[in-house]
Design a protein around this nucleic acid. Structure first.
Length: 809
DNA sequence: TTTAGTCGGGG
DNA sequence: GTGTACGACTAAA
């Protein structure tokens, strides 16, 4: 028979002394399918010192492992021609065992490609891409599984078409957890389990709660059983959760084991598997488990503004939605009390979390799938990869096309040596603190990737033997040169990414589809990760010299830009890595555009300077304790009056709302009106309001999370004092509890003046403390730029504060 | 300043 | 499973 199917997942099993690949997928009609392929053989390569080893290799037998065939092959190793021998063995596990044995042989120079996982090797060698349409020839066989099983005789790519309508099921559990942050799956049961699909909303629980979508089971064991049934009925392509690799699925597994419930959720009846100890990974054969948090932490880390990756912050930034605000600390005691109304609130919270996770998965899936298409590994694998792994696997895929051998990972010792070497960094021109007008920002588009591509930087081209002393790299630290005779492997494959992305950007001008956007983002991500990869100690294609050459060129181009700008009569005020801020003074925007065009005429390859923006007004503040400006700390106002704030502490959690608000408002007045007196009056007003105890109490709350239990703290800081107060009230206080407190008037140390917000009356709070520790520090540097000492201003003009300050000093 | 150790996410 | 994260931050030396 012949058939087409979308490949979703892949695994392998040992059957009758052979490795059999299992492909899981869906037909165009939506039917699930398992395809077995037993024709693929495991192999690796050896480089020999002595060809006499070939016969010895052919004879090799070890604990059921044997060599089936030895073939000489021409390949490139680090971009140079070599002859290696391909060793075909009987089983995937034989590779590792045989490698360990033969690496000690004197005839062996080195063993290569012994750690490319069997299923990944299969995908790359067969040139098939997960999530897209394949065609097969074969016969259906009779085997116990939840889908028809076909034994394939032929498998190949049919088209680039991606599986349409991916069925996602999101899950989230709530556990009984009286001890707070420390969780104990051995002891504490799962009390709620929420599932969210496209048309599916359900909370499973086992105490009486009335409500839509709530299903009450007899006990935890029944809940787990029901969970299993639902997965069976729903047949999702993707199961997703938030930290479900490390929490939800391991917890479910542990509880199911306790009741001896077999979680055979796999399409082939295999069980839910939890691998790894510190960094757990949960997998189900035939269903792609996506842990949204893993992708966000590893891949979206740099693109998101938030620096905490909990569901609340991430959902807020990516979806504009909040989690339900429930007192999670009280869940266990509410469960014990069987307070039905409150439990219903927790059930709704549970379902909402699953819903957020569902939406996140749906939103990010296009980006993940684009990476799958570039790298050709399964969604399950790609979704869990870091930047460097994505680059490495892209290179491994490309290595085949270039007939390049995959270099080995460095050993522990080699890694340590690499870590010690530090690449010289970017050039920074520190700003002179000040308030400036008519600012133009230039930046080199994708500077590092375009340097690597345009200057042919690769392992085989940097400091090559053939061109010593020719094409020199402009570096201040060591002699580096680049090959003129051949194109490098890494520089070529990064160029392919850049070119492909340029094409997509063109297409994006006509068609703003999410698919094209996702593709562009995937390629950008990959290109931007190459430089980091060159300098990454665990990289197979590590090149310290390549990384040095890249930053050397970057320093050269940015310094060149600065001096040319100055020669052309522009005043440069700030520059960092790839961007340059100038002020126009008596020149015009047109002059700046012309200058940018001139620079572009002389740039090589795909390098390009962008006029990134024009800003009528901008403020650069000073670094603490120096006269020069702070790096990466400035505020700009664009032509539409939007503020772009970089590096100011406006978002830090342990600042009160009033401090953030005052800082933002002051920046606003300064940038929009250039009126320092008005800004100062605003601060003074706020100070007065604070002193007269007229400020809203809610704006004064300081948020701090308790990191350990109360008695572990040697010094009682304000938030620990708040924790003590909370405990006295009979509320559970455990590591992780978020403390909210206000500093109030009174004698003694600050910790003695802490009160919980609900106990604070309007006249209680200590205005003086807020002025001194929140307001002044948040605006000090801004006023200092304009020659105003806020502290002094507030002192001389106001007697109350004067008294307060003299008391302190 | 350098180095070793912990933590994140989850209830 | 042809395996064992990683980068940021803090405490200690």
């Amino acid at each position: 028979m012949k058939a087409s199917f979308y490949l979703t997942d892949i695994t392998y099993k040992e059957e009758d002394g052979k490795a059999v690949i299992y492909l899981f997928g869906r037909t165009k009609e939506g039917q699930r399918l398992i395809v077995k392929d037993s024709s693929f053989q495991p192999y690796f390569f050896v480089q020999l010192k002595d060809l006499l080893a070939i016969d010895k290799l052919k004879e090799l037998k070890l604990e059921g492992c044997k060599v089936l065939e030895v073939k000489a092959i021409k390949k490139n190793y680090l971009e140079k021609e070599v002859v290696v021998h391909k060793i075909i063995v009987n089983l995937p596990r034989s590779v590792s065992i045989i490698k360990e044995e033969i690496k000690k042989w004197p005839e062996i120079e080195q063993v290569l490609e012994y750690d490319v996982l069997f299923t990944r090797r299969y995908l790359l060698d067969k040139k098939i891409t997960p999530m897209t349409l394949l065609k097969l020839e074969g016969e259906q066989i009779n085997e116990a599984a939840k889908a028809p099983v076909i034994l394939a005789t032929k498998i190949e790519q049919e088209s680039e078409e991606v599986l349409p309508k991916i069925k996602i099921l999101a899950l989230d559990i709530e556990t009984y957890n009286p001890e707070g942050k420390t969780m104990n799956p051995k002891k504490n049961p799962i009390i709620m389990l929420a599932l969210k699909g496209e048309k599916y909303d359900k909370v499973l629980t086992w105490k009486r709660i009335n409500g839509k979508n709530i299903e009450v089971l007899k006990n935890e064991a029944d809940l787990l059983q029901r969970f299993k049934e639902i997965i069976e009925e729903e047949k999702p392509d993707v199961i997703t959760g938030y930290y479900s690799d490390g929490f939800d699925l391991p917890y479910i597994k542990e509880r199911a084991d306790r009741y001896k419930i077999k979680l055979d959720l796999g399409t082939d009846y295999s069980e839910l598997q939890i691998r790894g100890k510190t960094d757990k990974v949960a997998s189900i054969s035939g269903i792609i488990h996506v842990d949204v948090l893993k992708f966000i932490r590893r891949v979206l880390r740099t693109t998101l503004n938030t620096d905490t990756f909990n569901l609340e912050s991430v959902a807020q930034e990516l979806l504009g939605e909040h989690k339900h605000d429930v007192p999670l600390d009280l869940l266990a005691q509410t469960w014990d009390k069987e307070d039905e109304e409150k439990l219903k609130m927790f059930a709704e919270y549970n379902l909402h979390d699953a819903n957020l996770c569902y939406q996140l998965c749906q939103k990010l899936l296009p980006n993940m799938i684009e990476l799958v298409k570039v790298i050709s590994l399964s969604l399950f694998d790609v979704q869990r990869m870091s930047f460097s792994q994505l680059v490495e696997w892209y290179a491994i895929k490309k290595a085949q096309e270039f007939n390049e051998l995959i270099p080995n990972k460095p050993g522990f010792y080699a890694q340590q040596e690499r870590i010690k070497k530090r690449v010289h960094g970017a050039f920074v021109f520190k700003p002179t603190p000040g308030l400036y007008s008519k600012i133009v920002v230039f930046d080199y588009r994708s500077l590092y990737p375009s340097i690597i591509a345009s200057h042919n930087i690769s392992i085989g081209t940097i400091n090559c033997e053939c061109c010593k002393g020719k094409k020199k790299v402009p570096t201040e630290f060591s002699e580096l040169w680049i090959c003129e005779k051949k194109q490098g492997f890494l520089s070529t494959i990064i160029k392919e990414i850049i070119d492909k992305r340029a094409e997509i950007k063109k297409a994006l001008k006509q068609d703003q589809s999410t698919l094209l956007k996702a593709r562009s983002e995937a390629l950008k991500l990959l290109a931007n990760s190459f430089y980091g990869y060159l300098a990454f100690a665990v990289a197979r294609w590590y090149s310290f010299e390549g990384a040095e050459a890249t930053t050397a060129f970057a320093r050269f181009y940015i310094k060149d830009l600065i001096s040319k700008a100055q020669e052309n009569g522009f005043k440069v005020i700030y520059s960092d890595t790839d961007s340059c801020f100038i002020i126009l003074e008596n020149k015009t925007k047109k002059d700046a555009i012309k200058f940018c065009e001139e620079i572009n005429k002389n740039l090589p390859g795909s390098m390009e300077l962008d006029l990134q923006g024009y800003y009528p007004s901008g403020l650069f503040v000073g670094a603490k304790g120096t006269t020069s400006g702070a790096k990466k700390k400035y505020a700009l106002l664009d032509e539409k009056e939007n503020m772009i704030i970089k590096g100011f502490e406006t978002v830090r959690r342990n600042w009160s709302f009033i401090a953030k608000e005052v800082q933002k408002k002051v920046l606003d007045i300064v940038l929009k009106e250039h009126n320092k007196q008005k800004a100062l009056s605003y601060v003074k007003e706020t100070v007065k309001k604070l002193e007269k105890n007229q400020e809203e109490i809610s704006k004064l709350i300081i948020f701090t999370q308790l990191q350990k239990s109360i008695d572990e703290y040697e010094n009682i800081s304000p938030h620990v004092a708040a924790a003590q107060l909370l405990e006295k009230k009979g509320q559970p206080v455990v590591p992780g509890t978020m403390l909210k407190f206000i500093i109030c008037k009174g004698e003694g140390k600050i910790r003695d003046k802490v009160k919980l917000p609900e106990d604070v009356k309007q006249e209680d709070y200590d205005g003086e403390y807020y002025i001194d520790h929140q307001i002044i520090p948040s605006v000090e540097s801004i006023f200092s730029v304009m020659g105003i000492d806020v502290e002094k201003e507030l002192r001389t003009k106001d007697q109350t504060t004067l008294a307060a300050f003299s008391k302190k000093k």
